[in-house]
């Protein structure tokens, strides 16, 4: 059965921000509705079904906090709301949550983060392709396979985890501490553990090829570097 697309209502008065979000979300399989003011946003939210509502805080006619409170009172189901705002103080965040928001993202934000949070809120992993392509890398999470330039890479579990984390974070570099905490959590590990896994990963990922992909940044972080033509 074909999976339903993620339906999203974007209540944002700034058309340029809306256009950016739409351009990022649509190719990933989301269907968007737009509202330019609070009143229109509330009407749409109450009349139609949406998986997630992305709500700006400062809106004409009806501000985001009031809209969210009214929505919670009038809607017959809990619609996940992610609040977007250019305010960043703790008080602002608390006011957002007090009005009934499920999540809060301060501007400026990375579009990838907004996409990830919307998917979490919709409790769906929609259109998360089992196959992910990054430069010459092709990751198939379902089959637990990864290839570079068509050549299958045989990776041990920890190396697989490290590479998945780097692919998902790309182009952002991932710090040593972040890798430790995502792989081993709070368990204490030997300080050299990561080094030996990275050595193993390089042996499989980079050694057989002309150009290395795994780049160390100042000894504290790692990122995947793509060729300019990739």
């Amino acid at each position: 059965m074909a999976e339903q697309p993620l339906t999203l209502l974007l209540i944002e008065d700034n058309s340029a921000i809306s256009a950016n979000i739409a351009e990022y979300f649509t190719p990933r399989g989301a269907v968007l509705d737009f509202a330019r003011n609070g009143q229109q946003g509330l009407q749409l939210a109450l009349q139609h079904y949406y998986d997630v509502i992305v709500l700006d805080l400062m809106l004409p006619q009806l501000d985001g906090l009031t809209l969210c409170k009214t929505l919670r009172q009038q809607a017959n189901r809990h619609i996940p709301v992610l609040m977007l705002t250019a305010r960043d103080t703790l008080d602002d965040k608390l006011a957002g949550f007090a009005s009934g928001a499920d999540d809060y993202l301060a501007k400026p934000f990375a579009l990838s983060e907004l996409w990830a949070r919307c998917q979490v809120l919709a409790r769906r992993n929609l259109h998360q392709p089992h196959q992910l392509k990054l430069g010459g890398l092709l990751l198939d999470k379902q089959r637990r396979q990864i290839s570079r330039e068509g050549k299958m890479l045989q990776l041990k579990p920890i190396c697989w985890q490290i590479l998945c984390l780097l692919i998902e974070a790309h182009p952002r570099p991932v710090s040593r501490s972040e890798l430790y905490s995502k792989i081993w959590g709070d368990e204490s590990t030997e300080s050299d553990a990561l080094r030996s896994h990275l050595y193993q990963l390089r042996k499989v990922l980079d050694k057989p090829f002309n150009k290395p992909m795994l780049k160390t940044i100042q000894g504290v972080g790692f990122a995947l570097e793509l060729n300019s033509n990739e």
């Binding site: 700034n14 340029a16 921000i17 950016n20 979000i21 990022y24 250019a86 301060a106 501007k107 400026p108 934000f109 990375a110 579009l111 990838s112």
Partner: peptide, 12 residues
């Protein structure tokens, strides 16, 4: 932050 958000989105 609003214009910075626009340019960040466009850059993404």
């Amino acid at each position: 932050r609003t214009p910075v958000t626009i340019s960040q989105g466009a850059l993404n």
